[in-house]
């Protein structure tokens, strides 16, 4: 396993809002990677979701435009009703194609595109949720030598999603939501030692 991860992809569905909110609150002001969130939400909850995530954190959660470049130290949220794909240049591509796993945005599509394009630069984290979206995407991340993390199913409000991932692919780290916070903090270059502890 390497330590030069550049992008952290986070998927979540039912029961994931609280732990992800906590994660964003605990982020250091400066982090050396980018974060892209793909969260399921009711179709007509369109506006206000990014804002709700931004409350009380030092970053603004951005809903990117098509062809927007992903920058370091920024947090992006897949817009509702669009799939979000990522290419080699870390450019975002949006698509309105059919829902996958009844979901648009689909976590699988985001994970798969990034795994293909950015290989071992990717960290994938899957939180609580009631369906199987994200499981096959985690498998792709693993196959491309990225790092796979799930929220501990015992702690997840709805464990179906992290459990489905466990059933299709090896998972590098099964962590509580608090541990995920410390892990992301340790990803910042200055704290490599802590990161090593996690990866042992």
């Amino acid at each position: 396993m390497q330590e030069e991860y550049e992008i952290v992809l986070i998927g979540g569905s039912a029961g994931s809002f609280q732990p992800i909110k906590l994660l964003l609150e605990k982020l250091p002001t400066e982090f050396t990677y980018s974060i892209v969130l793909c969260l399921h939400r009711p179709k007509n909850v369109k506006k206000g979701f990014a804002e709700a995530l931004s409350i009380g954190i030092s970053h603004t959660v951005l809903e990117p435009y098509d062809k927007e470049k992903i920058l370091q130290n920024k947090i992006y949220l897949a817009p509702s009703n669009y799939h979000l794909l990522i290419d080699e240049k870390k450019t975002i591509h949006l698509s309105t194609e059919e829902p996958v796993n009844y979901s648009r945005p689909s976590i699988d599509l985001m994970f798969e595109s990034a795994a293909y394009a950015l290989k071992d630069k990717v960290v994938g984290i899957l939180y609580s949720g009631a369906n199987q979206d994200g499981a096959l995407g985690m498998k792709k991340i693993k196959e491309n030598n990225g790092l796979t993390i799930i929220q501990n199913p015992n702690e997840s409000t709805v464990p179906t999603m992290p459990k489905s991932a466990l059933s299709v692919t090896p998972i590098d780290l099964v962590l509580s939501s608090k541990e995920i916070c410390s892990f992301l903090n340790s990803l910042c270059s200055k704290k490599k030692k802590v990161l090593k502890r996690f990866l042992l």
């Binding site: 794909l85 990522i86 290419d87 591509h93 698509s95 194609e97 599509l109 595109s113 293909y116 394009a117």
Partner: peptide, 9 residues
């Protein structure tokens, strides 16, 4: 055409 979505198609 954009490669990531074209790949999917």
């Amino acid at each position: 055409y954009a490669i990531p979505s074209f790949r999917r198609r």
